[in-house]
Nucleic acid binder design. Structure first.
Lengths: 164, 164
DNA sequence: GTAGTCACTTGCATAATGCAAGTGATACCG
DNA sequence: CGGTATCACTTGCATTATGCAAGTGACTAC
């Protein structure tokens, strides 16, 4: 009985989770954004068992989020650096950070985002790039796209561009 | 050997993952945002085994993301509706959607966000609420907050407001 | 030549996940 | 009244995944 795969679902959220949805994966990415690159650094930071770290790093490399790069020949030592695909994951971390800070830190914030220029705390919001308006219902909603199959189309109202 | 908990880590991302980081949880939330409320609806939509669905729904109720509400007395039947905490999770789904659409849908987009007023496709970006500027490095970065412990402070540069 | 660093692997226990099947209360049809 | 259907689950049991502890191998530093 293997864990059911989300990879063959059409939904882009499901596809994303197929890559980062496992225990530890997102925390590894978080640390990669903080500048960690080496096995030992991740292990110290996360307090994760080495076999788990090996599996997750391999999976993230496999998924194209991290790149394994040799930084020393003898003995052979690799470091793990974010690819473009990996770096594009950053907005997800920002929204997770904001959500966590709002709901799960009763003792006060331990990590905050700041504007490096002013030092002021930043508050991440998701907006539409074109209009600049904050995404919110019902002004914005998800619809089935051009490549949607029957099941997806049934879930959502109509298809993009064909909204009455 | 139980799965290691992220709940006692200070990081708000880890705290968040403690609530939604399990397999299926985020997809259940996705469906809740699409308007699904009942056990059978989730089961049909997700193609998930009923015992798994029971466990995840209970966990999400426990974590305060969903609320169990009786909609019929005899036989007793409950529906699951998003709480405010659950609704606040929406931005995370938007960023996951955008990331998935960019990287994992070679056959074309199946789900897109649209501006309901114009029908135009929306492109989610994360900005600072105060300045409106897109979050990006190095203009914005995470720092240890007021309630940070030693470990957190070591990971990040300094503390908020104390940036030189 | 002993100890330390670094990135792992191996062995084995426990937990999580998953399928299949069953349960119980009720409604609907004939 | 009997049979089928709906709905939200449980229970049983197999298979993975996760995790700790310990070991390995190739060096480097003292």
């Amino acid at each position: 009985m293997q864990r059911k795969s989300f990879g063959n679902m059409q939904c882009p959220i499901a596809r994303s989770l197929e890559r980062v949805g496992e225990w530890w994966s997102i925390l590894i990415l978080r640390d990669a954004f903080l500048g960690l690159t080496r096995f030992e650094q991740f292990q110290n930071s996360l307090d994760i068992a080495p076999n788990m770290l090996t599996r997750r790093l391999n999976a993230l490399v496999e998924a194209g989020l991290l790149e394994r790069r040799r930084y020393r020949e003898r003995p052979p030592r690799d470091e793990y650096v974010l690819t473009e695909r990996g770096r594009d994951f950053r907005p997800v971390l920002w929204t997770l950070l904001a959500w966590g800070n709002k709901h799960f830190v009763p003792e006060g914030k331990s990590v905050v985002l700041i504007d490096a220029a002013t030092g002021a705390e930043a508050d991440p919001v998701v907006v539409d790039r074109h209009t600049g308006r904050p995404l919110a219902e019902p002004a914005y909603r998800t619809v089935a796209g051009p490549a949607a199959d029957e099941r997806t189309r049934r879930r959502h109202g109509g298809i993009a561009g064909a909204a009455s």
